[in-house]
C-alpha cells in the first residue's frame, strides 16, 4: 500500500468530521457548536447534556442532521459508482449517467410527477425514479449483448442514444405538465437533499453499505479488467459475470441516489479522478477513498447551497455542476498531454 493512502484516509475523515460539524451549526440560523454536537449525542444515547432551545433542537435534528447524513450517503454512493463504471469500461470520461441510469431515473420521476403524482404517497417519485433507472440500464445492457459477450462500445453508445431519447421524453412530458408539476420537476432535476427522511436515509445508508462491501470484494477483479477483458479472463475472472454484477449494482446505487436526491452531476465523474491523482488507480484504495471524498464534496456543496443566498437556498445539483465542470476542465487541460 502506498504510504500516502492512510494519510489521505486520515485527512479525509478529519475533513468529513469538520465539515459535518460546520453543516450542523452554519446556516440561516447560527447555532452554538458544542450544544449542537451534544444534542446529537443526547439523541443517540437518550441523554440530556445540550442547552439548546426546542426550536434549535428541531433545526439540528429534523433539518440539518438528516440532510448532512443524506449528503454523506449519496456522495459516497455516486463517487464509488463513478469509480467502478470508469474502471469497468476502461474509460476516464465514463460516469454512471453514461449507461443511461440517471436519465432513465429522471424519466421515471417525471412520469410520476406529471401522470400519477400520489399513487404511492411520498414514495411515488423515489420508486418511479429507481424503476426508471433500473429499466433503462437493463435495456442498454440488452442492446450491448451478443453471442460474443457484452460490447463496451455498444453499451456506451446505446447509453448515449437512450439518454437522448429520455431527454426527448422529458421534454414531451414537460410540455403537457401543469405549472405546479413543472416547478416540482425542474427543482427535482437540479438535485436537492431537502427530502431527507428517516425512510430514505435508511435506504441510502443500506445501499451505500452493500455497495461498499460488494465493490471492495471485487476490487482485484476490477484491477485485472484494467489490463483488458481477455487478460482478465486469463487471470481467472468471469468477466461477463463481473460486468453484469457491477452494472446492476451501479444501476441500483445511482437509482437510489437519484430517487433520494434528484440528479446530482459531476460527483461520480470528478471524485475518482481526484483520488487517482493522489494515490493511483488501484481499486483496493480507490473505492474507499472515493467514497470518503464523494461524501465530503457533496456535504460541502450542500453547505454552500444553503449559505450562499440565505435565507433562500440553491439546488445542490447546481452547486456540484458549477464547481465540478470548471474543475474537470482544469483537470483535462493538465492531463491532455497524457491522453493525446
Amino acid at each position: 500500500m502506498p504510504r500516502s493512502v492512510p494519510l489521505y484516509a486520515f485527512a479525509l475523515t478529519g475533513l468529513l468530521l469538520v465539515c459535518g460539524l460546520l453543516s450542523l451549526v452554519v446556516g440561516a440560523m447560527s447555532l452554538p457548536v458544542l450544544d449542537s454536537l451534544l444534542i446529537v449525542v443526547d439523541k443517540a444515547f437518550d441523554a440530556n447534556f445540550s442547552q439548546l432551545h426546542d426550536y434549535q433542537e428541531v433545526v439540528v435534528l429534523e433539518l440539518r442532521l438528516p440532510r448532512l447524513l443524506l449528503a454523506i450517503f449519496v456522495g459516497a454512493i455516486l463517487a464509488q459508482c463513478g469509480a467502478v463504471v470508469q474502471g469497468l469500461f476502461r474509460n476516464p470520461l465514463a460516469d454512471p449517467g453514461i449507461i443511461g441510469v440517471s436519465s432513465g431515473a429522471a424519466v421515471g420521476a417525471i412520469v410520476a410527477i406529471v401522470l400519477f403524482p400520489s399513487a404511492w404517497g411520498s414514495w411515488t417519485i423515489p420508486v418511479s425514479a429507481f424503476l426508471g433507472g433500473l429499466l433503462t440500464t437493463l435495456l442498454v445492457y440488452g442492446f450491448a449483448q451478443s453471442k460474443n459477450g457484452t460490447s463496451v462500445l455498444v453499451l456506451l453508445l446505446a447509453g448515449v442514444a437512450i439518454s437522448a431519447f429520455a431527454g426527448a421524453a422529458i421534454g414531451f412530458l414537460s410540455y403537457f405538465a401543469d405549472d405546479s408539476s413543472l416547478r416540482e420537476l425542474s427543482v427535482w432535476q437540479m438535485g436537492s437533499l431537502t427530502s431527507a427522511s428517516s425512510a430514505n436515509l435508511w435506504l441510502a445508508f443500506t445501499t451505500m453499505l452493500v455497495l461498499m462491501i460488494a465493490f471492495q470484494r471485487r476490487a482485484q477483479a476490477l484491477n485485472a479488467v484494467l489490463l483488458g477483458e481477455s487478460e482478465a479472463r486469463h487471470l481467472g475472472i468471469n468477466v461477463e459475470q463481473l460486468k453484469l454484477q457491477m452494472i446492476i449494482l451501479t444501476a441500483v446505487g445511482v437509482g437510489v441516489a437519484v430517487s433520494c436526491a434528484g440528479i446530482i452531476g459531476f460527483i461520480g465523474l470528478v471524485v475518482p479522478h481526484l483520488v487517482r491523482l493522489a494515490t493511483g488507480s488501484n481499486h483496493h484504495y480507490l473505492l474507499p477513498l472515493s467514497a470518503l471524498l464523494g461524501a465530503v464534496l457533496l456535504m460541502c456543496s450542500d453547505l454552500l447551497a444553503r449559505v450562499v443566498v440565505q435565507p433562500a437556498e440553491l439546488p445542490v445539483g447546481l452547486v456540484t455542476v458549477l464547481l465540478g465542470a470548471p474543475f474537470f476542465l482544469v483537470l483535462l487541460v493538465q492531463q491532455r498531454k497524457n491522453w493525446s
Binding site: 476516464p92 482485484q220 484491477n223 485485472a224 487478460e231 493511483g280 488507480s281
Partner: peptide
Amino acid sequence: LAVLPQASQLAFPFSAREVVALGLTP
C-alpha cells in the same frame, strides 16, 4: 495456463509493481 500478450495497455496508470501484483488474482 497463462498468456503473455503482444502489447498491453492500461486504461489507468498503475506502477510496474502493481501490474506484477495482478498475477496474484487467481
